[in-house]
Amino acid sequence: MDVLVILIPASLFLGLLGLAAFVWTLRKGMYDDPDGDGQRILDPRYDDKPKPVTRQDDAPSP
């Protein structure tokens, strides 16, 4: 059972890592326009970097 000493902190750490990633994506507004982001892949203008997101521009879909 000694392995728990490593496994439990490891699982907690990975969980926190996932949570941090979620918080980051939410703050960056990555859930604001899922349809548009899917379509923008097809546009050669955004091959090098994504179109910059302007400050909180979109309200939640009513």
Binding site: D32, D33, P34, G36, Q39, V53, D57, D58, A59, S61
Partner: peptide
């Protein structure tokens, strides 16, 4: 200055 179309909300925001 810039325009961004949100396809999910079908809404255009223009700066």
């Amino acid at each position: 200055n810039s325009a961004r179309l949100n396809l999910t909300l079908k809404r255009l925001s223009v700066d």
